[in-house]
Design a protein around this nucleic acid. Sequence first.
DNA 1: TCAATGCTTCGGCTATGGCCGAACTATGAA
DNA 2: TTCATAGTTCGGCCATAGCCGAAGCATTGA
Lengths: 222, 222
Amino acid sequence: MKDGPSISHVAALIGDPARANMLVALMDGRALTVSELAECAGVALPTASGHLARLGDAGLVTPAKQGRHRYFRLADGDVAAAIELLMGIAERTGARPARTGPRDAAMRAARVCYDHLAGERAVRLAERLVEDGCIGEGETPDLTDAGRTLLAGLGIAIPTQGRRPLCRTCLDWSERRNHLAGALGAAILGHVLAQGWAARGPGRVVRFTPAGAAAFDRAFGL
Amino acid sequence: MKDGPSISHVAALIGDPARANMLVALMDGRALTVSELAECAGVALPTASGHLARLGDAGLVTPAKQGRHRYFRLADGDVAAAIELLMGIAERTGARPARTGPRDAAMRAARVCYDHLAGERAVRLAERLVEDGCIGEGETPDLTDAGRTLLAGLGIAIPTQGRRPLCRTCLDWSERRNHLAGALGAAILGHVLAQGWAARGPGRVVRFTPAGAAAFDRAFGL
DNA sequence: TCAATGCTTCGGCTATGGCCGAACTATGAA
DNA sequence: TTCATAGTTCGGCCATAGCCGAAGCATTGA
């Protein structure tokens, strides 16, 4: 009677189609206004406002007032991780016809998950890092000395340790294996974009240039 | 717009309190019957049956027929992981310590779980029995000679061994630790009621009399 | 100061879906 | 065979909560 209802409250919030659409729209880590989210969810503005108030109360999104706009973003990586996991479960049931459009293929290849990289290449990276002993295993792996050396060589500054874990695993919905999240995951995405190895496409898609993909693979020994 | 609804379907399934309770009850990996899950969820059997059919369709639980029972277990670790994550999010919000009504407090103190005792006192009993070497450990602990002696002294007949395990552990909702189920768990509850140490209240609540509580604690050395 | 924009609150409508009792099927026991 | 137990299906009741339009703040710009 204790855990049940409390998780059901959170799950019920995600369980409404309009709210789910909003949350998915926020999965790329950007902040959107109430009007934009209403548009994404396909509901009228008052309805969206009500939904967002409830999501905010439950700590799934955080508001930021700016002028006469109110921006909302996902509260943190855990919320993004939960949504990714639910996507994986939803997909596996086969309820969804395959329908693998071109945009879908790009999403599978590489995309943003909150503030880090997800998709096929991100999963390969994560597995390689473990294999090479650069990071440990588990939910919040350690960054080893080997890992620090590798990153230093690439010119990626190791984020200072705050409240947020340096490394975290996040289950990838398209690959069904872990990719790397946490502060370091965010730093790597930043590096990839800063180097021009890839650029953000529409929505969550991340497009690697041919040269960028090669550089990425070389950098991490893929 | 395509992902939203599909994750919302899964989330909505978890989002119903009755179903959430069932899923949480299954979190220890064991399989439970429809009746047991109905009891855990606090709903009637037909209602539980319907819920489980939907959870099964969505691939969150898997059924296994055995005789005239139908056992359900969580489909896989991903489902468990998603529930854990949702628990974490729900907890961090601090959202729901709220509704601690009198009936709720009574439920936490002592209640019936299927046909045995659950709640704070039941968990203490189970831990004491293990500590005193009266029963073993694991999912279906053995009853030791020390345990048989204790029960004989209290005048509790040891149930004849049928298909049902004599001792079984059952995860306690409110305490999140194990209490004692199985044929012996049922026998102990029967004894408690027969001795007038406690009486069934409304719903699942079990109310101990002051003298009954003292007698119970003395009997088991709590 | 007035107007325009962005958002929230309110009130009322509606439908989804959760719940149960009763009746029915299937399995096992006597 | 007959009875008992476990579970499913059906029908109907009812509450929750999702939705929108209208009206009410609040912030910005003229």
